[in-house]
Simulated assay, not measured.
Amino acid sequence: METRASLPAGPVTPGFESRVKATSRRRGLRAALSWLHLWVGLVAGTVFSLVGLSGSVLVFHDDLLQWQHPELGGHEARADGDVLAGILRRWTPEGLGSLHLPEPGGVPTWQGYFGDGRRGYFDPASGELLLMRSADNDWLMWLHEFHVELLGGALGEEVLGVVGWIAVGLLLTGLYLWWPKAGRMLTQLKMHRGPPVRRWLTWHRSSGVLLLPLLLLATLTGVGMIYHAGFRAALTGAFGGDGPPAAPQRMASADAPVDWPRVLDLAGTALPGGRLTRTSAPAPGSDVVAFRARNDGEWHPNGRSLVYVDRAGTRLLTAHDATAQKPGARMTEAIYPLHVGSVGGAAYKWATAGAGLLPAFLLVTGFLFWRRRRGKR
């Protein structure tokens, strides 16, 4: 027998059941996302926090390097062809792969990159070795290897890429869980002093939302550096752009020397307003000397422009101006400078360092909120 209590209290409006089901689904989705956000955040967020903290330090890598090694400072940042020739002749047999030219406003010495990961620093006037660094004897290089590959080589880089995508998911689910009803935006952004559960929750969500654009930019550009080929294909496909031109092919006799003073002079005129940044010894039998360059208007600290000249320094073979590329290619090459804070001056540099601290703050406040809430049950 059906009782009166089992009957509806009034007429059921059209769509009532569908609205109830939709509300139930939203609540179920929200509960599931909240659970994932908590536990994935506590696990993957720990790695994300450590990587972020290391990135905050590495933003000031060159400043810390010269503070730690004052012998690298006080030099005239001048690229002398004879000195360059001497460094390459002495160190190429020992694994020197490329040389970064002395940089005005940066490290004013020659910086050598070796195949085994070492970095050598050479006096710009004499070519004398001033410092040899590696991850085994230098804490900044150790920190750099942790930041880019979790000290695990190619496998560590892949793991870091997965953590990066998880971090993007955490940021977006956090935004979804925070999103308020109409008219309550400012209320949801308020940070409270107490009680503890409310304090940690509001500090966690409000700081995350307010700084979300900066942290999301740092995270996506980091992922973009790991999956560079995929990001480049997507951006150039959507906005246009091609890859850099291939190096010209020219054969030279094995005993043809490189006239480095003339080569530097000629290459330096290839891009008016540009600055040569890196070079290396030409391949055996090749008549082509390659340079990286930073043209006026490029964000990348080392530039993505390219210059190729012959060994004798008499012929400019190719000059690729990275600023003349289509938007997709230029957007791709903006990923690295945006990630390391090398654009926008000191303000953006400090903002990038601050973004690296935020994952640790979110991890700690999220953990404290979970612990306090759990203790009240």
Rank of each mutant, 00 (worst) to 15 (best):
G73N: 07
Q68N: 08
E71G: 08
H61G: 05
L53K: 13
H75K: 13
H61I: 06
A77K: 05
V83L: 00
L84C: 04
D82E: 07
Q66C: 08
R78D: 12
S56D: 03
D80Y: 08
V57M: 11
S54T: 01
V51T: 07
G81P: 04
H61D: 08
D62S: 13
H69S: 10
Q68H: 08
G74P: 10
E76M: 06
Q66D: 13
L65R: 13
E76N: 03
G86A: 15
A77Q: 07
Q66L: 12
L72P: 08
Q66P: 05
D80Q: 15
S49Q: 03
L72G: 13
V83C: 01
D80F: 11
G74F: 07
V59K: 02
A77P: 06
Q66Y: 09
H61F: 14
A79I: 00
R78M: 12
L72S: 14
H75Q: 15
P70H: 09
E71A: 15
G52R: 00
S49E: 01
G86R: 10
G81I: 01
S49H: 04
V59D: 02
S56P: 06
E71H: 12
V57N: 04
H61Y: 14
L72H: 06
Q66T: 11
W67Y: 14
H75P: 10
L50M: 08
W67K: 12
E76T: 11
H61L: 08
D80M: 05
L58G: 00
L65P: 05
D63G: 08
D80K: 11
E71Y: 11
R78I: 15
A79K: 03
S54D: 01
D80R: 12
L58F: 03
A79M: 06
L64F: 15
G86I: 06
V83F: 01
G74I: 11
V59Y: 02
L53M: 15
V57P: 04
Q66E: 13
D62C: 06
V83S: 00
E71I: 11
F60G: 10
L84W: 00
V57D: 02
Q66R: 13
L72E: 05
Q66G: 09
L65K: 09
Q68C: 04
G52H: 00
E71C: 07
G81Q: 05
V83M: 02
V51Y: 00
A77C: 11
P70R: 04
R78T: 15
G52F: 00
G74A: 10
E71R: 13
E76V: 07
A85Y: 12
D63F: 04
L53R: 06
L53H: 09
L50W: 02
A79E: 05
F60Y: 13
H69I: 05
S56W: 00
E71K: 09
E76I: 05
P70A: 04
P70Y: 10
A79R: 01
F60M: 06
G74D: 12
G52D: 02
L72D: 14
G86C: 07
V57L: 08
L72I: 09
G86V: 08
G86F: 08
D82V: 10
G81V: 03
A85S: 14
L58A: 05
R78E: 14
F60C: 12
A85E: 14
